[in-house]
């Protein structure tokens, strides 16, 4: 067996840096065995987004639970969460907002006669020009070719600059991994033809996964027929989570 120098260095690096198990996993990756299913998924044919109809959200928190279960989200951190707004007046009054445990266990009733009140689900906006991707010093967070903002947890330094740069509070540091963590739009699901865990369990279809490059996706109808808004449009992040019936007080 003859090795080129490069191979030799790579082998040595693997040997020194990786535990045998991790090295084995890497070998498996190289030979493509993770991808045993025939890969029908073509990144270039998709551009993922989500639509949220605020008027349909019942604040059950099923999405928050399902997300935590599907993605092993650590306690006290949220890839998606639900906020409750209670707006008393439209003068100087600040809206009253809460999100106990991210809304995971629903909301105790709050009866404020005369007030306007509703739930707003939140998640990573998978911005097309993401401030978080812009500031990552090493390329550990990035926009995938199909429009999903993802994190390479084996490459992230844990510098937290992206957490500071996200205007929506969607990122956190994973307490065990010490790397940044966030919504992946269930990339492992949507690339298999499934919907995201949160959309799968949403009982009223308040949140619906959308593929903007698919001409048959109902999202086009939705965007055409409704007044839609994104969060903090003045940030010019080109968010791809489109809200219908979003109140101006929501931030």
């Amino acid at each position: 067996m003859s090795l080129t120098r490069r191979e030799l260095i790579e082998k040595a690096t693997k040997f020194i840096l990786l535990t045998p198990a991790a090295a084995a996993a890497l070998e498996a990756l190289d030979s493509g065995s993770i991808d045993t299913m025939p890969d029908k998924y073509k990144q270039a044919e998709h551009w993922w987004a989500m639509t949220i109809d605020v008027e349909k959200c019942i604040g059950c928190g099923a999405c928050v639970q399902a997300c935590a279960k599907e993605n092993q989200v650590p306690d006290g951190h949220y890839r998606t969460w639900v906020e409750r707004y209670v707006i008393d007046g439209y003068g100087d009054e600040q809206p009253e907002v809460d999100s106990p445990d991210g809304g995971m266990h629903g909301f105790p009733d709050k009866n404020r006669p005369g007030a306007k009140t509703f739930f707003v689900p939140k998640l990573c906006n998978h911005c097309a020009t993401s401030p978080c991707v812009q500031v990552c010093p090493v390329g550990a967070t990035f926009e995938s070719p199909d429009g999903v903002v993802l994190v390479d947890e084996s490459y992230c330094l844990g510098c937290r600059y992206c957490v500071q740069a996200c205007p929506y509070g969607c990122r956190y540091i994973h307490p065990e991994k010490q790397t940044v963590d966030k919504c992946t739009l269930c990339y492992h699901r949507i690339t298999k033809g499934l919907t995201t865990a949160c959309c799968e369990v949403c009982p009223t279809q308040a949140r619906v996964l959308a593929d903007l490059k698919n001409p048959n996706d109902p999202v086009h109808e939705f965007l055409r027929n409704n007044a839609v808004q994104v969060l903090k449009p003045h940030m010019a992040t080109h968010s791809k989570v489109y809200y219908r019936n979003l109140d101006g007080a929501v931030r």
Binding site: L29, I34, D35, Q43, A66, K69, E70, N71, G139, A140, T141, F142, E143, S144, P145, L150, D152, S154, Y155, T184, Y187, H188, R189, T191, K192, L194, T195, A197, E200, V201
Partner: peptide, 20 residues
Amino acid sequence: GHYRGPVLKEIRAHPVSYAG
């Protein structure tokens, strides 16, 4: 792009809990 290409496959390898 400016990231590790293979990471896309690694992320896709995450197991599914909700069958659909």
